[in-house]
Amino acid sequence: MTERKKQHDELQKGCFGDATIHEDVKEYYGKILSKTSDLRSNACVTPSQPVPAFILQALKKVHSEVTAKYYGCGLVVPECLEGCSVLDLGCGSGRDCYMLSQLVGEEGHVTGIDMTEDQLAVARKHSDHHMQAFGYKKPNVDFVQGYIEDLTEAGLKKNSFDIIISNCVVNLSPDKRRVLSAAYCVLKDGGELYFSDVYSNKRLSDKIKNDKVLWGECLGGALWWEDLIQLAQEVGFSSPRLVTANVITVDNKELEAIIGDYKFVSATYRLFKIPKISNKGSLVIYNGNITGFEECLEFDNQATFKVNEVVEVDGVLASIFTHSRFANEFTFQPPGTCAGCNVKKIKVGTVNPFELVLQLGTAIMSSSTGGCCSAQPQTSCCK
């Protein structure tokens, strides 16, 4: 048995069957939960933190029934969305899809996929309402029933999406490797998986993994954060970039007794489908042409780019910018070609979400939808 196979078996050890998990999750989100307040932990509740004005404006236009059925663990909104093709894994009632519909514009498109019929019924019910509210002549949102482990089987085409988002859903899957592999398959070259999810500080015990309520509350299926790093790279993604992290609290004595000394965070990572890179870095200069990010662009927990500032980045980040939708937003120069310049060097940011929480000294990090640089809608990087 290979070492990789041993590690995969260890990840799955103690889990009840895939079909059982899927059915239990469907029941939890389709039958047991009727509104957000029914949740028994804050694992799938948006943290109380600043949200950019343009996101709040977009959310206000989402139908109240759709919002009431929302169970995400944060807002997942990367930069440069106008004109893009976006896929939302585990879209549920469609709240994020209808919010993103406004950001991609009528020429962009948003697809939501979910396995729960009851949730999709709510999403589809209000399609016409949203298109009229947004002033669109034709719908730019559709919803597909299927499993996030089998995207092509659900009818989604390979190499067809610019961006995939996911909001507190990957943990609900019994096979995270298949989810990442499926996402990689349907992303275009240079595409991005930008997602928020729940992670543990160590591999979970069988007792936690086999508890139906903890699975439904997004804790029982949480990955040890180090396993995410390994799985992402094995599937083919670039090294994960950690954007934000938030501590999860469980104010429920029954659940606390089962959890014991395990700790959980919600964290946002960004993974890119880019070619294998050389070890050569690059000097990059952010052009400041993204609306709402004219002065600076916060890319992850370490990499912030001020307009016209010369920044030295490593080979991985240089490759991400060169091959993704950010290619036209930077000027690239070989290292050592800017004599006399005041060059800023990006430090390698932490990928450990627990470490990030400790570094910032607070349970609430800056919003995954933006930060000090974010206040306006984004312009297109996909065209």
Rank of each mutant, 00 (worst) to 15 (best):
L283T: 02
F299K: 00
I320F: 05
D314K: 04
G292P: 03
E298T: 14
T304P: 02
K306P: 09
I285G: 01
I285L: 07
Y286E: 03
T322F: 11
F293M: 14
V311W: 10
S324H: 02
N289W: 09
G292Y: 04
T322I: 10
V313A: 00
L297R: 05
S319C: 09
A303L: 09
E309L: 04
I320H: 06
E294V: 04
F299Y: 10
E312G: 02
V307M: 05
E294S: 12
F321I: 05
N308H: 12
I290P: 02
G288I: 01
E294M: 03
V316Q: 15
V310R: 06
Y286N: 04
S319N: 10
I320S: 04
N308I: 02
S324W: 00
A303W: 08
N289G: 13
Y286D: 03
N287K: 15
E295R: 14
S324G: 02
Y286V: 02
N301I: 01
Q302V: 14
F305W: 10
E312S: 12
F321C: 00
E295P: 04
L283C: 07
L297A: 08
T322G: 09
V284N: 04
T304K: 11
C296G: 09
G288R: 01
V311R: 06
F321K: 01
T304M: 10
S324E: 00
D300T: 12
T291G: 14
